[in-house]
Simulated assay, not measured.
Amino acid sequence: MARTMYAPPLPGLSATDGLDTVINWGLGADSTAYLARMLTAPAAHGIDLDRTAVLYMATGSEWPETRLLVEEFMLPLLREHGVRLVQLARNGHRKKDRFTVLDDSRWPERLIARGPWTLWDDLESVGTVPQQAGTRKCSLWAKGAVGDWWLAQVFGTRPFRQIMGFNADEARRCLRDETASKLPGRTGLYPLADWGWGRR
């Protein structure tokens, strides 16, 4: 059964009014380090929180410890600063199934770790296993495509910045992201690489 292509934002929030920066948050060490550092002085990092949304794409495969740490440390930090967190998930295997907005709030109370269709649902449906190297097809399918659908709907052809949490050891990922994007108006930014922050 087809689900709603796009759930409206929560009352008081608009998907388009003034929004010009999106921060991808994969819950990993890199993107979390960027968020925590940026929130020490948003303006000094070129961020206007009123014009920014943090995107999280739920795959249904996060470690329980990750969810606990996010809810104990990061969600209170996002609430303290009134950061808009948009949580998305796929509705099904096919592109036409589209996505669901699980939550859209400046005061997120919990991390919604699974949506209507998870990465494991998909792997089981096609009889395969997660990819460990190479082009990261699982990540592109479960996260990248979902985020791109939301971005295309929200921004259309308007210019916007998308901040990615690739670290300084991932120069090839930065270059691949910069050249592969097909979203009009998008400028990819890689602050951890610019700061020289590698995994160490």
Rank of each mutant, 00 (worst) to 15 (best):
T59V: 10
R114C: 01
G82H: 00
P64M: 03
Y34E: 14
T66P: 11
N91F: 12
R114P: 00
E65V: 12
R98C: 06
S31C: 03
L140S: 10
L78Y: 02
L119I: 13
S139R: 07
Q131A: 14
S105D: 04
L151Q: 07
L140D: 08
D50P: 01
V146I: 09
D104W: 15
P116N: 05
W150F: 12
L140A: 11
M57A: 14
A142P: 00
S61M: 14
A36V: 14
R98D: 13
S105E: 09
T52P: 00
G147I: 08
L68T: 06
L69A: 15
K96L: 04
D50E: 14
L119N: 05
E62S: 07
P64F: 08
V101L: 10
V129F: 14
T66C: 04
E109C: 07
Q87N: 03
V83Q: 02
A58Y: 10
R67A: 13
V83D: 00
A43T: 05
H81N: 12
D30E: 14
M57Q: 12
W117G: 04
F73D: 01
A142M: 09
A133S: 15
P116L: 04
V126N: 03
Y34G: 09
M74R: 06
G134Q: 09
R94Q: 08
A133W: 03
R37K: 07
V70Q: 00
N91K: 03
F73W: 11
A36S: 09
K96P: 13
I112Q: 11
L49E: 05
G60C: 11
D50C: 01
K143C: 05
W150V: 09
A29D: 14
R84Y: 01
M38I: 10
V54K: 03
G46T: 09
A33S: 13
S61Y: 10
M38L: 14
G144H: 13
A36R: 12
S31P: 06
G134K: 12
G127C: 10
L78I: 01
V54L: 04
A41P: 15
G134A: 07
V126C: 06
C138R: 04
L35I: 12
N91A: 10
S105T: 12
L55M: 13
Q131M: 11
Q87A: 06
R98K: 10
L69K: 02
L123P: 02
H93M: 05
L75V: 05
T118F: 13
T32A: 14
W63V: 08
V83W: 01
A33M: 02
P76M: 02
N91C: 11
T66F: 04
E80C: 05
P108S: 11
W149F: 12
T128Q: 06
E124P: 00
Q132W: 13
M38G: 10
L111Q: 03
L75A: 06
V129K: 09
Q87C: 04
A58V: 10
A145I: 03
A44Y: 08
P76H: 04
V126P: 08
R84I: 01
G60T: 08
A142W: 06
D48R: 13
D122V: 09
G60E: 11
L68Q: 08
E72V: 14
H45I: 00
H93W: 14
C138K: 04
P108M: 12
E62A: 13
H93V: 04
E62R: 06
V126I: 14
L49N: 04
G115K: 15
L68M: 08
P76A: 02
P108E: 02
S31R: 15
L123G: 05
A29V: 02
K95S: 09
R136W: 11
